[in-house]
Design a protein around this nucleic acid. Structure first.
Lengths: 204, 204
DNA sequence: ATCAAGTCTGAAACTTGTTCTAGATTAGCG
DNA sequence: CGCTAATCTAGAACAAGTTTCAGACTTGAT
């Protein structure tokens, strides 16, 4: 029995090497196009051409533009989680460490604002048909935050706090991306919401 | 970045009576179509036909579908603010009153989930070209929350808390609309984030 | 090696948001 | 009233996401 990855819903058949390569080319092209121009610049025909794949094939791999961009985000998130694991945040309190982690992620996004635009817009625009994928992104984000808190076994209150932090994170990114909030303001919002953690971590 | 007075950008010429009527018909048609079917059901051709206006005219009044839906949201928000003013929340603490107010708004949205979908998706999908309008919605929301807190002259910390509450509000709505969070969970998230207020309002 | 099933390709078609155009209508003004 | 500029209308045209289809290519099993 081949060990199936725990993350995919219906156990999709394993991809051949060429298929894996195609999928990778597509995600790369998507990130590249998103990197300049953001959401609008990721045009399905261009992604197809740029990744040497027919349009129909692109749609077989990713059933919509939003699916594609959410998958792109999963990809980037994994990368980021790896980076963060290698250099964990150094704050004294859980709240400080979470804020530091999110600010680090934020600085990474600032380096590729167009890519951030494409991914975040796709994420919040996603409808029910993309729920499983969006949920996966959410779980990954939760894992990153819990890592920063240094918790293995969070209480329900702590999970609520983490959910609220994620809400703030996404929405603050949106306001920044659409030019309605400055970088400084996003920082303040993140620090503000992280104070919620202090309410759930009694001692320390 | 012009720090503009609170009302509008370039003083647009006042509308004639027939124009005001057209605008109203359009917004009504928009809300109607959104009411069944949500974001996707608001099709510009249908809005135009249903409000007895040529497509080009619709685009003169609202330069994009997102503009139209954000304007629809402004419209609904004003209505709601009026309703809330008439029956203010009754909690003892500021946090309770804010949570109660938001839950009341949430219940109103639950009665028209498709309309909520259209408005909230438009709001978070809006790009820079819609910033003034989205900002107006944000100011209106802030006003509602400050009303509930019973504050005339909020401190910077309090404004930060309000911003975070708004972030949570929008993002929690999104997760509910896309079926990734239950009504109960949204309630918990709202109550959780409202605790932030306690950190900024010393005592009653 | 061969066959069936599944996959990929290229191209056209369809949908819906958005833009454009030419001609009718309306509003404001002398 | 009659003029002019602005507005409105109907409809075509364009753009990009999505679907469809016939035929070529791979893959896996026999």
């Amino acid at each position: 029995m081949p060990a199936e990855a725990s993350t995919s819903r219906p156990p999709s058949p394993p991809l051949t090497e060429r298929q894996e390569a195609r999928r990778r080319r597509i995600l790369h092209a998507s990130a590249q196009l998103a990197g300049r121009g953001g959401f609008d610049a990721v045009q399905m025909r261009e992604v197809a051409e740029s990744s040497q794949v027919a349009l129909g094939t692109l749609y077989r791999y990713f059933p919509s533009k939003v699916h594609l961009l959410v998958a792109t985000m999963q990809d980037q998130l994994e990368r980021m989680h790896g980076t963060l694991r290698r250099k964990p945040p150094a704050g004294d309190t859980a709240a400080e460490r979470v804020a530091e982690t999110l600010m680090r992620a934020f600085r990474a996004l600032q380096r590729e604002p167009h890519l951030a635009d494409a991914m975040v817009r796709a994420l919040t625009f996603a409808d029910r048909s993309v729920s499983p994928e969006v949920d996966q992104v959410s779980r990954q984000t939760t894992a990153i935050i819990l890592d920063a808190m240094g918790l293995d076994d969070p209480s329900p209150e702590q999970l609520s706090a983490v959910r609220v932090i994620e809400h703030t994170w996404h929405s603050a990114l949106i306001t920044w991306l659409s030019g309605r909030a400055s970088i400084a303001q996003v920082k303040i919002d993140i620090e503000t919401v992280c104070r919620l953690i202090d309410l759930t971590v009694p001692q320390e």
